[in-house]
Nucleic acid binder design. Sequence first.
DNA 1: AGCACA
Length: 911
Amino acid sequence: MLSGDIPPNQTIYIKNLNEKIKKEELKRSLYCLFSQYGRILDVVALKTPRLRGQAWVAFLEVASASNAVRQMQNFPFYDKPMRIQYAKTKSDCIAEAEGTLAPKEKKRKQEDKAERKRRGDEGQQPATENGAAAENGGRTAPSRHGNSNAQEAAAPNNILFIENLPHETTSDMLELLFKQFAGFREVRMIDAKPGIAFVEYEDDIQSSIAMQALQGFKVTPQNAVAITFAKNLSPSNSYRLRHALTPMKKLSLTVAMNNPFDILTDEIIHAVLDHLDDDPFTRKSFSLVCKSFYLLERLHRKSLKPLRSELLHGVLHRYPSISHLDLSCCPRVNDPLLASLSASWKSTLRSINLSRSRHFTATGLRRLAENCSFLVEIDLSNGTELTDVAAEAVAEAKNLERLMLARCKLITDIGIGCVAVGCRKLRLLCLRWCIRITDLGVGFIAVKCKELRSLDLSCLPITEKCLPPILQLQHLEDLVLEGCLGIDDEGLATLNHSCKSLKTLNLSKCQNISHVGLSSLTNGAEHLKQLVLAYGPAVTTDLGKCLLNYSRLKSIRLDGCLVTCSATKAIGSWCASLTELSLSKCSGVTDECVSFLVQSHRELLKLDITCCTKITYASIDCITRSCTSLTSLRMESCSLVSEDAFLLIGQRCQFLEELDVTDNEINNEGLKYISRCSKLRSLKLGICSNITDDGLTHVGSGCPKLKELDLYRSRGITDAGIAKIACGCPAMEMINIAYNDKITDSSLISLSQCLRLRILEIRGCPRVSTVGLSTIARACRELEVLDIKKCVDINDNAMFALGQFCQNLRQINLSYCSVTNAGLLSLANTNRLQNITILHLAGLTQNGLAAALLACGGLTKVKLHTSFKPLLPKYIFEHMEGRGCVFHWRNKAFQVEIDPNGWQLHVGKTP
DNA sequence: AGCACA
């Protein structure tokens, strides 16, 4: 090791530091960097010819120093790898703390230094006598820096000296000003000397903070106060200053002078960072505050979602503590990359998402599983090329708790058998669409992995034969058997076990299971909370009665089922109340059913009655009367519900956060009432042709929290309505105003106030142009998804603006716009573009397209017109597909214009 | 490469 023969020491010695970094910054950064290993007593760095590029960090504990020597060895710090050893001698601050720093020793040290200096300087400086050299050096030092003693600032202390006060200032006035800061003690003024004052705080840090905050404060327009530390301290204060400050406090004080944030301890900053974890933008702003925040953020960062795999190599060393790696934006992840990341984050990596990545094999997975022994989660969904060898490699991850293998269609019972043997700690396993896995593999899993909590077996060719061991799992809470057509009533009747721990059961699309099978399967499942029976057999009275066995049931989804009225009456006659009920697309649901249900489930929070086409005003009356705490109501296409029903929603359901009334008869009066729901976050008003700007005005003034608004084909609206929305809903993240022919640039200009806008759909708005979109691009820098299909007046200039300002753009549909080669190419500047659709761009040539495709390095999905296929050189496809991009070809004919009376499009001929 | 505390 680099520490060589030097015995362990509380202090570490670091060399090969970047000599360009200023001393104070270097000390501060070292402090930040090393405080992860323990309490630091002092950081020493000097810029003298002999000592530049080196530093000492003194820890309270030897163990901290040892860890620092080992773990930070060669850590790239200001672009240079640090070389770390134990220090050869004891630091003075430690000797002082131990009470062993004798004055004698100090003197001896000084002499040593003088001696060395003399020897080192031979030939360059005339030799001087020992004592004289030492003393002289001490005295001349300040004058070298060009500061006379008289002008030199006093050392930081607890008393501030205030100058340039208006003569009429009283101590009361000053007290008011200075007592806002913690630690305030008193103001002292001298009658004979107007214009100055002394303000005392409890300690130097508190006085420093007040100084920072009030420096230059204008008491009157002419009197900006000047604050310095007081110079002539009373004897008691000067004693305090000499003895109360530990070396570390001195350091943090010097630091506080430059940056007020630096007086925060690392623990506090880490606690702040813990709360920022899921928001990349906040973290980014955080690390831009100052260099030490930047550094700490790097060290603290635990999750990473790189936009491209090429970028990953560069950050392997930058972020030493990554535990969660999301590679879902990286279509190409090869074995060497898996090997190097698993080497870098060997002891930290706990979770990795490879669900959208390809080009790796069992070899890479094996390295991952072997290196990262703390790995608990791997998402390999969509690994359609992965075989049993890959599953065998995954089985090396002995601590794995969550494994997602959805659509790994080549993996068989053999592969899953390896996983069962290797990963005994599995708690969650998703085998959805692993169509080669049969009863054998599933049964084996259930026998071996006793810790399983959650098991997804959707669409597997399994039968009831694999169920007995599954139902014996002691902790199983979540079982998904969606689309398992091999399981039927007859088979289920053979079961004699029940799973008591089961909390959620999903039997959607299980056409062969009726209430008979359901009760055999859930016999004794007294903790069942959620039941999904969507798209299954008819919901009959018997089924309804069967549900009565589960007294703790909170949520039922019956989407797409034929529901009889008597069945809903049975469901309605429970004593306990459901919180979530979905009846979307249930044919057979009438007002009578709904009324019955909601009257006995008054605690309902979420209700979905999408496409319950028979219900009317009466249902809405009943729902809103009974379920006043409703937070989500989805009722798209309930076309018999009359316009006055919507008033009731606004009057009675003040807690609504989500409302979908797409394709309903709602009018402005209804919107007026609905805008009383001030908690509304999502409002869908697509194809609501009765609403106009008046209605939107109400929404704009009543729903300040709105994040999502859908006005697709709500053809009564104009720019004036959008202006009210833009003004009243600053939190807006997603807006759809597609196919509204009255919308112009003016709407886009108003929407540019919504700085958090992420998704903008203006497809088929023929009157918007480059001007409007460029304004959006300049203002809404978080834009991720943009649909401008058929906006024929949008041209290259708008693309230039997007390329310049919208660095987060992920997805764009440009079909039928007036964009040409140059505009398309400029989108490559956004760096993050993954998904692009271009059918019919008149100004685009094959060379322009080829150049743009190559330039947009992060593309994962490209939708093009078939006519381009033979025109592009073959190597383009090879190259793009090699990078992980998938091409989708469409052969739609050129569509000329939008039918002003509806959404049927005239189909014209190709140009 | 270089081990100090100003």
